[in-house]
Design a protein around this nucleic acid. Structure first.
Lengths: 113, 113
DNA sequence: CAAATAATTAAATAGTTGTTGAACTATTGA
DNA sequence: TCAATAGTTCAACAACTATTTAATTATTTG
């Protein structure tokens, strides 16, 4: 992850709808969610969702996979991990500032396999 | 850190000049840098710097301290740590996705005390 | 093939962001 | 107090972002 990619990723996440969408995709795990399901959960119009998903995809934070007439979007965990690594190393004095590792107890995210 | 504050922090960092400024302040440590020194290192005009520092300060990522006719800006490490915690817990499946802790060897950031 | 469904693309538009140059405020020191 | 220095604020404007409605593409099913 370089500075330029970091800025793009940060910009993609720096908007309410996109951050919410990304969080839902993270919760959904590797299989992701169909665009329609996402639009319903976020309560936004299909074009609005397309617009925002395009931003997330362009930043490399989500991937699209077509299945019949549905398009499933899923979070790219590696990309997010790279972003966190960049922020920790470059914006937080490295180890001196990194937060304690999450224990997985608080947010109860599902295991991804 | 809540979702709304996270979006504001992400937006503050999601711009080349502001990310560069924040990185310089992180490197500078708790004493920070005077605005003029920052403007010189970033090679931008004083008004441009003021504009961007205002964004970082509004997001709570930097603090200002006046000393004579200089104004020193410094990174708020706690705020950055909170943001990283939020992203790890909410956008990365918690422990399942958190990157390995930085060792401090790679980026050679100075210890902050 | 025609109708229905899922989603994207296009066009218009309101709002926000970033940059520039000029004006202003505050502090220091002769 | 006057000049110099350090920064901020203001106003204008170009560029970008987000939202909406309508049109379009692609896939399934009768």
């Amino acid at each position: 992850m370089n500075r330029s990619r970091a800025v793009k990723s940060l910009a993609a996440l720096a908007q309410d709808t996109r951050l919410d969408a990304f969080r839902l995709l993270v919760q959904a795990g590797p299989d992701g969610l169909a665009a329609g399901e996402l639009a319903a959960r976020l309560d936004i119009s299909p074009p609005a969702l397309s617009f925002h998903l395009r931003g997330l995809a362009h930043a490399g934070l989500v991937q699209a996979r077509q299945d019949g007439r549905f398009i499933y979007y899923s979070a790219d965990f590696d990309a997010m991990q790279s972003l966190l690594g960049f922020l920790t190393e470059n914006c937080c004095s490295g180890a001196a500032c990194a937060p304690a590792r999450a224990t997985g107890r608080k947010s109860n995210a599902r295991r991804t396999s």
